Computed example of a mutant assay.
Amino acid sequence: MRHFDRRHFILTALTAAAGGLCSAPTAWAQPAAAKGTGAARTPLILVLGDSLSAEYGIARGSGWVALLEQQLAKEKINARVVNASVSGDTTSGGRSRLPALLAEHQPSHVVIELGGNDALRGLPLKSVEDNLTAMTEAAQKAGAKVLLVGMQVPPNYGTDYARRFAALFTDVAQARKAGVVPFILKDVADGPDPTRLFQADRIHPRAEAHPQMLANVWPELKKLLR
């Protein structure tokens, strides 16, 4: 097999037929935790994401959000998880869905993993920033700690666009004093053999990649859980 160019792979993954992350809508969520009272209330982590968090193309229970539940149990952290991710969602879609989710679940922590589909569609960076800021502010006003989980695009999108898009997540997090994971696919999309960790569409990570995705998210989320 010829040497595989990682940049070409990532570009192909992000641009293929405007599909991929924008694939058929799927969503799943676990029941909300019973609402406790006062200090006895169990922390609840709400994950608002796209197909990277919605277990697209892999067995239920093998995605990074499901693995997060196992990590919490392993570390004896008393917290529950609600996965409100929808394949194909954008920051605009997440912004419109979030108020109802906050009202229903009253989360103590909100993980926002959105933005990849905005980049696929070439949406203005200002609108992406505004949506991320609005979601972060809404969650914080509802009493939740926020973790922004970022994406990156290759320079083929334009060096300036790629740089500014990657910086959005950290910029919003710093401005709003939220947590941030710069790139959820670190050591997956930019690893030595990315084809091994992606499904046949070269867009969605295989189940084998999700432990690494959790490894990218967990250290920053754990800080917020302390």
Rank of each mutant, 00 (worst) to 15 (best):
L224D: 02
V65I: 06
A59R: 13
L224A: 10
D187W: 01
D193P: 01
L114A: 02
S108P: 02
T195P: 05
P124I: 09
Q140C: 07
K35E: 10
V82N: 00
R206D: 07
A175G: 14
I112V: 15
L148Q: 09
M135V: 13
N117V: 10
P211G: 08
A119E: 10
N131S: 07
P124R: 13
G122T: 09
A34M: 07
G36L: 11
Q174H: 14
R163V: 06
L123W: 10
Q30S: 09
L21S: 11
A138L: 15
V111H: 03
P219Q: 13
V146S: 03
G20A: 08
D130F: 12
A119P: 09
D193M: 07
R163P: 04
D89L: 15
I58W: 01
A18T: 11
A16K: 09
G179A: 10
L147H: 02
M135N: 04
P155H: 12
L14M: 12
R121Q: 15
G49F: 02
P99A: 04
I45Q: 01
A73C: 05
A27S: 11
W218V: 05
K177G: 14
Q152A: 13
L224S: 04
D50Y: 07
Y161H: 12
V217N: 01
R60Q: 13
H105V: 11
R206W: 05
R97K: 08
A24L: 14
G49W: 04
V65P: 02
R80L: 09
T136L: 12
A142Y: 05
L147G: 02
A13F: 00
F9L: 14
A27G: 07
L67H: 02
V188W: 01
A138D: 10
V181Q: 03
R206L: 10
E113G: 03
S51T: 06
A39T: 11
Q199S: 04
P124H: 08
P124Q: 08
D190T: 03
D89W: 11
H210K: 05
T12W: 13
V47D: 01
A215N: 12
P107S: 14
P205H: 07
L185W: 02
P99W: 05
P154N: 04
S127T: 14
